[in-house]
Amino acid sequence: MGATLTYTEVELISGLLARDEKIFTYLYDHYSPALYGVALKVVGEEAAAGDVLQEVFVKIWRNIDRYDASKGRLFTWMLNITRNTAIDSLRSKNHKLEQRVQDVNSVALMYEPQLAVHLSVDHLGLTKVIEKLQKDQRIIIDMAYFKGHTQEEIARSLEIPLGTVKTRMRNAIIQLRTLLKQL
C-alpha cells in the first residue's frame, strides 16, 4: 500500500490540519474504499454505509487536530472512527428495524466474493484469501474485528462454548496472516 502513496503520513496530517482540500480529496480517494467496506460489513446495506462513510469523513475533517500520531497510524485512527460510527449507526433504533429484515440477506451476500476492487488490490488476491479462509473463520474475525462483538456475544451467536471462541479466533487470524503473506 505504501508504494501507491504520494504523500507521507506526516504530509497528509499536516495538510489535513491546514484544511487543505487537495489533501483531503487525496485522503478520500485512497481510503474511502477500505472504510466503506468496513461500514458496509457492519451496517449491511449500501445506503446506510454511504451515510456512515460521509459522517466518518466529516469527523476526520473536523477533528484531525485530535489525532495523536504517537498512539497509532492515521489509517488505524480512521478505521476506529469508521467502526465506531458504523456500530453506532447500527444500534440506532430506526436502523435496527430495517436491519432485522436486511440481516438474512446481507450475511449471505457479504461472504460472496466481492466484485468491487480496491485501487491497489487486485481481485485475484482477494479471491485467493477468501477461498482459502474458511467461512466460519471469516465470520468469527468479522464479528470481533468489524462489528466489535464480545467473546460472549460471539459464543451465543455461533452457538459454540465460550472457551472455543479464543481458540478459533487465534487459528483464524493465524490462517489469515499466512494467506496474506502468500499474496
Binding site: P33, A34, Y36, L40, A49, V117, H118, V121, L126
Partner: peptide, 14 residues
C-alpha cells in the same frame, strides 16, 4: 495484516 484484510474487502463507494 488486519488492515490489509480490510483493504482486500474495500469497495469503491458511489
Amino acid at each position: 495484516n488486519m488492515e490489509e484484510y480490510i483493504r482486500l474487502q474495500g469497495r469503491t463507494p458511489e
